[in-house]
Simulated assay, not measured.
Amino acid sequence: MTVALGVEADISLALPDRAGALADFGDALGRAGVSVEGGGVWVHEGVGLAHFLVTDVDGARAALAAAGLGPVVASPVVSVRLAQDVPGQLGAFARRLGDAGIRILVQYSDHDHRLILVVPDADRPAAEAICAQWERERIARGS
């Protein structure tokens, strides 16, 4: 999947399960001037699974390759703002996606308090429509 320059995308890659792996990742992006807008790393079965939101996919890919990290997979994202002060928002929103048959492949929050989601390509238009409807309802409620 090609992601346009300047468009937010999730980059994912496997990091080694060792001390300093995340520092190597962050240093490489920092030297290249690539800003991370959200994401995280989880170790599962001895592999660091990294997912981060960036707008410079090509810069991130090049910087991480130069640091010996990758390969990097870039995926388009959909995002929505939940009412942070209302309990149950994550469940209610995720239920809408689930009821529509949309699988959530990756979920995290960005630095601007938005829920960031990667969904299968075929499901992205429906997920975007659900996000837009959720936003309209949230704004109408004043939350």
Rank of each mutant, 00 (worst) to 15 (best):
residue 2 T to Q: 07
residue 3 V to F: 06
residue 5 L to P: 08
residue 8 E to Y: 10
residue 8 E to P: 08
residue 10 D to Q: 03
residue 11 I to F: 08
residue 12 S to E: 15
residue 12 S to P: 06
residue 14 A to D: 15
residue 16 P to V: 07
residue 17 D to Y: 05
residue 19 A to S: 12
residue 20 G to D: 10
residue 24 D to V: 02
residue 29 L to T: 14
residue 33 G to E: 13
residue 33 G to F: 03
residue 36 V to N: 02
residue 39 G to K: 02
residue 41 V to F: 08
residue 47 V to T: 15
residue 48 G to E: 12
residue 49 L to I: 10
residue 50 A to V: 05
residue 51 H to M: 00
residue 53 L to A: 01
residue 55 T to A: 03
residue 55 T to V: 12
residue 55 T to W: 05
residue 57 V to P: 05
residue 61 R to S: 12
residue 62 A to N: 13
residue 62 A to S: 14
residue 63 A to C: 07
residue 66 A to Y: 10
residue 66 A to C: 07
residue 66 A to P: 04
residue 67 A to Y: 06
residue 71 P to C: 11
residue 73 V to A: 11
residue 73 V to E: 08
residue 75 S to H: 13
residue 78 V to G: 10
residue 78 V to W: 02
residue 81 R to S: 12
residue 83 A to Y: 11
residue 84 Q to C: 03
residue 86 V to S: 10
residue 88 G to S: 13
residue 92 A to R: 15
residue 96 R to V: 10
residue 97 L to Q: 09
residue 97 L to V: 09
residue 98 G to I: 05
residue 98 G to Q: 10
residue 99 D to P: 01
residue 100 A to M: 11
residue 101 G to P: 13
residue 106 V to S: 02
residue 106 V to L: 09
residue 108 Y to M: 01
residue 108 Y to A: 01
residue 109 S to I: 03
residue 110 D to V: 07
residue 115 L to H: 11
residue 115 L to A: 14
residue 115 L to S: 11
residue 116 I to D: 08
residue 117 L to G: 04
residue 122 A to K: 00
residue 122 A to G: 09
residue 124 R to F: 04
residue 125 P to K: 12
residue 125 P to R: 09
residue 126 A to K: 12
residue 127 A to L: 04
residue 129 A to T: 09
residue 132 A to V: 04
residue 133 Q to S: 12
residue 134 W to C: 12
residue 137 E to M: 12
residue 139 I to T: 13
residue 143 S to L: 15
